[in-house]
Amino acid sequence: MNSYDSLKKNRDFQNVYKNGKSKANKYLVMYVLENQLDSNRLGISVSKKVGNSVIRHHLTRLIRESYRLNKEMFNSGLDIVVIARESAKDRKYKEIESALLHLGKINGILNEKSM
């Protein structure tokens, strides 16, 4: 993932939280906001409630990899913030990937041709 593909600044996250729309499922919460760019920017948040730093970083890597391998399925020009829920901590890659794609579908941000 290139540095331009991710949200890093707190103000960017706060803007997506305040102005974006959100949907959730059992493992993840997704906020989506249009960004007037040609590419998507992904932000990932995993709270300390989920687990220690090893667990949090593992979950972050699973979410990032799920997005990276499926990013051609998502529409362009979006800021996407994914928040991991506590129930996601013991999940395998396929379950996280499925949850991410499910949220993309219910948010209406997946390309029709990829579905």
Rank of each mutant, 00 (worst) to 15 (best):
K89T: 11
K113T: 03
L110F: 01
L42D: 02
M30W: 05
R56T: 00
D38E: 13
N25K: 11
Y17Q: 14
L28R: 09
L69M: 12
I109E: 01
L37G: 09
V29E: 02
N19E: 09
N19I: 04
S3R: 15
K26Y: 02
N107H: 05
K9S: 06
L33S: 03
F13D: 06
N111Y: 07
S66N: 07
L7Y: 04
S6V: 12
N2W: 11
E34A: 10
L100M: 12
S39E: 10
I80A: 08
L100Y: 08
L28I: 06
Y31Q: 06
K89R: 15
I80L: 13
I109R: 07
N35M: 11
T60I: 01
Y67K: 03
S76G: 01
K94F: 07
D79F: 10
R68P: 06
H57R: 15
Y93I: 01
N75R: 14
A99R: 15
H57W: 00
E97I: 06
K23G: 02
H102T: 13
A88I: 08
M30Y: 03
A99D: 05
K26S: 07
S114Y: 14
S39A: 09
G43C: 01
L78F: 05
N35T: 10
N10F: 08
L7R: 10
E97H: 12
N10R: 15
G108P: 02
R11P: 06
H58L: 05
E86G: 13
V32T: 09
L28H: 04
K94A: 08
G43M: 02
R68F: 01
S39W: 13
M73H: 07
N107F: 04
K94I: 07
I83W: 03
A99H: 14
K94G: 00
Y31G: 04
R41S: 10
L37Q: 15
N2G: 10
N15S: 13
E86M: 14
I63F: 05
A88H: 04
N75D: 02
I55Q: 11
G108W: 00
I96E: 00
I55R: 11
D90K: 13
G43H: 02
K113L: 10
I55W: 05
H58V: 00
M30A: 04
K89E: 02
M1A: 03
D79G: 10
V32D: 01
K26N: 03
E34Y: 02
A99M: 07
N15H: 15
Q14M: 14
V81K: 14
G43K: 04
N2H: 12
Y17F: 14
K48V: 11
N25P: 12
M73E: 06
L100S: 11
S45C: 04
K113Q: 09
N10T: 15
V16R: 07
K105I: 07
A24Y: 02
Q14C: 08
V29S: 06
M1E: 04
L59V: 01
K8I: 12
S53K: 08
H57G: 11
E95P: 06
K8S: 09
E112A: 06
V16L: 05
S6M: 07
L103W: 12
K8D: 01
E34M: 06
N2P: 12
N2D: 09
K18N: 07
K94S: 03
A84G: 14
G77D: 05
D12P: 15
S76E: 07
D79I: 14
D38P: 08
